[in-house]
Amino acid sequence: MNLIKFLDEFTTDKLQEPNTSRRAMFGQLGSLTKKAAIAAVPFGLATMSNKAMAQSSSSVVDVLNLALTLEYLEDEFYAMALDSGVLSGNAKAEAIYMQISKHESQHVDFLTAAIEGAGATPVAKPTFDFTVDGAFDPFNDNGAGQATAYAQLLALAQAFEDTGVRAYKGQAGNLMGNPGVLTAALQIHSVEARHASEVRRLRGLEGWITGNQRGAGMPEATQVVYDGATTEANIMQGGLDVTTLGSGSPFTVDASTQAYDEILTGDEAVAIASLFIVS
């Protein structure tokens, strides 16, 4: 399946409609057309119809293909980073990138196998441009110099990992009813969070996100990673303002936003990934 076609489908309403042939083909995954709400539903409303609350919905295979797209991006990024020489001489950064690279590669293989196992076709690996039309030079291919390239290499890794955490989280509701797939997705989700924490700390930040701050040294273009329909500055959890649940430092706005990561919708995740996709 062509990636652009897939992304196009993912971001249109087509997925809202039953697709009989697809459903038949992937039937072994179970309730593929289950529509699950991913909106932040206040507790009092939790028993209302999920359908009425749904912001978007998609099938299990569509979710897995979105995940695969993000993993392709991360996998290629870390492989190119390790090949670039920008990390050479920095044993710590190199060891961290190698460990993350290994996981992203494993995620690509795992998701590919999962999609094929469902009788579906994994989305094709896109062509990436990590310079974003020359705005960045993370691999020091265009004369930015080692120091600038290194800073951009770390900044992009932070953006990709924090995006990954939010994107997987946003799709969890679409995997309800498929316990095996949901659990595996959660297991990838928390690995991305470990990566994100480590890359952030390597950059001198805290491992968690305060407000919707992208953090020192992050290019303005990465702000989209921390914004969205529900920004990382959100303090309303399940209809409760979590800053009001008690007193003292645990309930400051900073701590209250750090304590909860937020979702990206499928559309938002696709929009971020698309910045780095040529075709």
């Binding site: 969070a193 470990r194 924490s197 968690w208 399940g238």
Partner: peptide, 18 residues
């Protein structure tokens, strides 16, 4: 309930960061 799953997701990734 999907809303609860999302909430659990919001918390578990912070535990993983920890």
């Amino acid at each position: 309930t999907a809303a609860y799953l999302t909430l659990a997701g919001k918390i578990v990734s912070v535990e993983a960061r920890h």
